[in-house]
Structure formats: C-alpha cells, structure tokens
Nucleic acid binder design. Structure first.
Lengths: 207, 207
DNA sequence: TTATTATAGTGGTCAGACCAGTTCTCTTTT
DNA sequence: AAAAGAGAACTGGTCTGACCACTATAATAA
C-alpha cells in the first residue's frame, strides 16, 4: 500500500491496487481474487477497508462475490451499474439529451472509420448479413463499431448503448431500407453521403 | 431496514433505501445525507454496512463525502464512471493509434456541437481569447468541449487527453493561424469547412 | 471404495474503539 | 457589545476482533 499518495482514501487506493494486480497477474473473468483477509494482510490495511473497495467494485459489476467461496473477476461489459445509475439519474433531462447526442455522434464516427478502414469484402459480407438477417439497432451498430476497428470507440459505444437502453426512451422506427442505405454509402466511400444516410436513419435534423 | 426481501446483501438494500430516501425527501445535488451513524441507527444495521453502501455510491460519483462535514449528494452530470471504467477496461489496450484516432474524432464532434449550440457572443468571446492569449492545444479544445455543452463528451475528451499526453508522442506543430481558422469556421457555421479546418490543423489526410 | 463428518477457509455483519478533521457554542478578552 | 479563543460535539476514516452462514476439502468411518 505504502507508495500511493496519502491524501486519498484507503479504499480508493485498494481499488487501484486491485486494478494493477489484475493487470500484472493477467487475471481474466472468472479468476479468483485473494480473500479479503489475505488482501488485508498483504496491503496492511483493515479488512473493512478492503471490503469497502470490493463492495464498490461489486456494485459496479466488475467483480462477483460468493459467500464461502470467494471473490471473482466478472465478465464486465457495462451492465448492472448502468441500470443502477439510471435509477439515480433518470430525472436529469440534460443528461438524457447528452447521452443520445453522444451516442449518435460516436456512431457516426464509427461509420466513418468503418468506411475508411474496411475493404469491400468486409462491407459486402456486412451487407449480405443485413440483407438476410433480422437484427436490432444495437446489433447493427455493434457490427459497425467492430468494422471501425477501434477498441476505444467500441468500449465507449457499448457503455453508451447500455445507458441509452436503460433510459427506455421512445425509439424512432428504423426501416431495413435505411440500414441498407447506410451500408450502400459505406460501400460507395462517400463521406458526405454516408453522414446524410445516418442522419436520415436517426431522423436528425442537423449536426 | 424493513427486511427488503430475502437474501440480498445488506449494503445493497441500503443503497436502495438511500435511493428512495433521496426520492421521497426530494434531495437535490448539494444536499446533505444523514450521517453514517444516524443511518446506522435508523436502518438498524451496522455502521460498516452503511459505509459499504456509501463508498460504493461514492465510487460511482453519486455522492461526495467530506471528513468532519458529512455526506452530500453530488451534481452527477458527466460522470466519473467513464473515468473509472476506462482505467479498468482500457488499461491494456493502449493502442496509441486508437487513442489518437478517437481523440481526434471526439474533438471533431465537439467542434460540430459547439458550432451548432453556441451563439455568436460565445464564439466571439472565444475568438478574442484565442486572439490575445497564449494557450496550449489542450486549453483550446477544452474550451471547445465546454462550448459543445455536453458533459459526457467533456468527460470522455478529458480522459482521452490525459491518455494522449501520457503517451508522449510527437505532436504536430500548430500555428495560431490554424486555430483562428477553426474559430472562424465555427462562426461561419459551415459544417464542411469546419471539418476541413480541423483536419488541416491536425494534418490529417482523411476521415 | 464410498459415504460421512470434522475442519479450515470465505464472505456477511456487527460492535466498539480511536483518529482526524469541521462546526457550533460558550466563555474570555478587548 | 463585539471579537477572539477554547473546547465540546459531531462527522467521516480506519482498525480490530468477534460471530454467523456457507463452501470446499481433508480426515475418518462404513
């Protein structure tokens, strides 16, 4: 524990410590963390402080604890906490607007990246999938985010998507035609037209 | 603690209890929550359980605690959740390319939002600042992100900026002229030209 | 071998103690 | 009466030790 700056609270330091521990030891979802008592000893802190850190991470959905067994790393893909947070901030209209706005722009960014980075084969495969399969909006843009080939954007989009879904807002209807139109613009490599196709799909007036 | 239902852990019940308490009493950001000891008494639970709940909410950025003063509801907007998750999720994939790419696109998004949402007064004030002051690239785009009036983007950008700076990459030289050019395009309300001005500033070839 | 039973380990919770800050009050000083 | 100061009272921060309930494993008995 010692190295970390003293000002911040112990439990935050423990959170950081756990992060580096997970990183250093290459722990993956499903793996077991040291027991509370062992962490308490190793980090030379009280068990209650360890628990504060673990409980916080648990509420975030980053870990899972099973009585009698131990604490395990969880397969976190945004979840849990999104729901929790939404129950706390649902009132904030501005926040809602921000989420929608951000999600839309991020999706646009992903589209542009996909357009730039994907080859025709990838896009044609995408197109044939969209042509035949029945899919949700999330599934469609997940594929876009994957084509964008940018982990950061993928992560950000995933979180935003979960947020957005937890808001339970009225969603605009989207026809398959509009999705196909977007894909076609991806293929035609026309930036401006791609943007237009997305705006049309989302029924956006500007930006 | 009205035995909120079976098995779930006490601290989770306390979190729920706090939510309804905030809701029922109409508590707003800045308002003070009961002290840990009082909550402990009122809910008939141990103080440590109360703390586990409060620490979790604190890590989520929903409340703020000040030693000697108390626990307060926080002005949740943006969210430190992005911050937290990023340090946990993005830690290993520091693909420099992704970070630069993402940062650039986010900045572009913020520019477009700023162009749409800001009035001439704001932009002119921005312009006169840029005209006279000596500023860094970060300072410039911080102002842009603020003009974009989207806390989420502000949060994301801040994190990306910090990541980017920590990479210590070679930064392209930017002249004041290029910054002024961007501001002028903001004022002229031309989307396409604004994008072009930014690309030029960052010496980007495409996207 | 298999079934049973201790036993050690793990999380869940509580109570009490002490520290370190802040706030409020009441006395002392000016 | 007003300002300054001292101290009590309160608040969060942390640690310790004690149980409880549950699980997994080792030792034992069938």
């Amino acid at each position: 524990m010692s190295q970390h700056q003293k000002d911040s609270k112990i439990y935050v330091e423990i959170v950081k410590e756990l992060r580096t521990m997970i990183d250093r030891d290459g722990l993956k979802p499903g793996d077991k963390l040291p027991s509370e008592r062992e962490l308490s000893e190793r980090l030379i802190v009280g068990r209650s402080s360890v628990r504060e850190a673990l409980r916080a991470l648990e509420l975030l959905g980053l870990i899972e604890t099973r009585r009698g067994e131990g604490t395990f790393i969880r397969d976190f893909q945004g979840n849990q906490l999104v729901q929790l947070l939404s129950t706390f901030i649902l009132q904030d209209e501005k926040a809602k607007k921000d989420i929608v706005e951000t999600k839309n722009l991020i999706e646009m960014d992903c589209l542009l990246l996909a357009q730039n980075k994907s080859n025709d084969d990838q896009l044609l495969s995408f197109k044939s999938w969209a042509d035949t399969a029945v899919f949700t909006d999330d599934e469609f843009f997940l594929k876009v985010a994957l084509l964008a080939d940018n982990h950061l954007f993928l992560r950000i989009w995933t979180i935003l998507k979960d947020y957005y879904n937890s808001l339970k807002m009225d969603k605009v209807e989207t026809t398959k035609l509009e999705y196909m139109n977007v894909i076609n613009k991806l293929l035609s490599r026309q930036r401006v037209e791609l943007r237009e196709a997305y705006r049309s799909l989302r029924k956006m007036s500007n930006v």
